[in-house]
């Protein structure tokens, strides 16, 4: 790869990491627009998936891991869960686009919705259902299911944002 292209690629990765950091702050800080009632915006999930849709497997995997590590720092549950989850989202979304689907907004929205649903179910299952927390079913219906819907709506925003960065810093 030419030196100029290497510099562009490095800059793109740094920029995406910075976007992940900013979105993490917005998602996990009080006073920020990160919830509607009890439903939460899990911004990092569609962001990582959209990075996977537009970037290579390697880049999206490690950026997913970075996002997951940040989220684990503020998590009230077992550290490592979000790291593994977002690493897998980054890797799998990149592989799916590479092998099966076309890269477009519809694919992005569907993959973000499915990814968020999978995350919410896994989180609810491991940390509420398996630990026999009272009212677990109610928590899923009142908190996590609405969160899936409102998070999926933000997919186009992150798809166009990541696509913009990718186009401006595209390498040959």
């Amino acid at each position: 790869m030419k030196k100029h292209d290497k510099g562009k690629k490095a800059l793109k990765i740094v920029l995406l990491a910075l976007i992940i950091f900013i979105i993490f702050i917005v998602q996990n800080t009080g006073g920020m627009p990160n919830h509607i009632g009890r439903a939460r915006f899990f911004f990092l999930i569609p962001l990582v998936i959209c990075i996977g849709i537009t970037q290579s497997v390697a880049v999206s995997t490690w950026l997913g891991l970075f996002a997951g590590i940040l989220w684990d720092c503020v998590s009230a549950e077992l550290p490592g869960f979000h790291s593994i989850a977002l690493l897998c989202f980054g890797c799998i979304s990149a592989l799916i686009i590479e092998q099966f689907f076309r890269r477009n907004i519809v694919t992005a929205v569907i993959m973000c919705a499915v990814g968020t649903a999978f995350y919410c179910f896994a989180y609810w299952f491991f940390f509420l259902w398996l630990t026999d927390v009272s009212g677990a079913a109610s928590a899923f219906l009142r908190v996590y299911f609405p969160s899936i819907l409102i998070t999926a709506i933000t997919a186009p925003l992150f798809y166009y944002l990541v696509s913009f960065v990718h186009k401006k810093l595209r390498t040959n």
Partner: peptide
């Protein structure tokens, strides 16, 4: 001071 919250936790845990 309260500086953050865990968005995934349904019961308002904070940092």
């Amino acid at each position: 001071e309260v500086v953050g919250l865990d968005s995934a936790n349904a019961y308002g845990s904070f940092m």
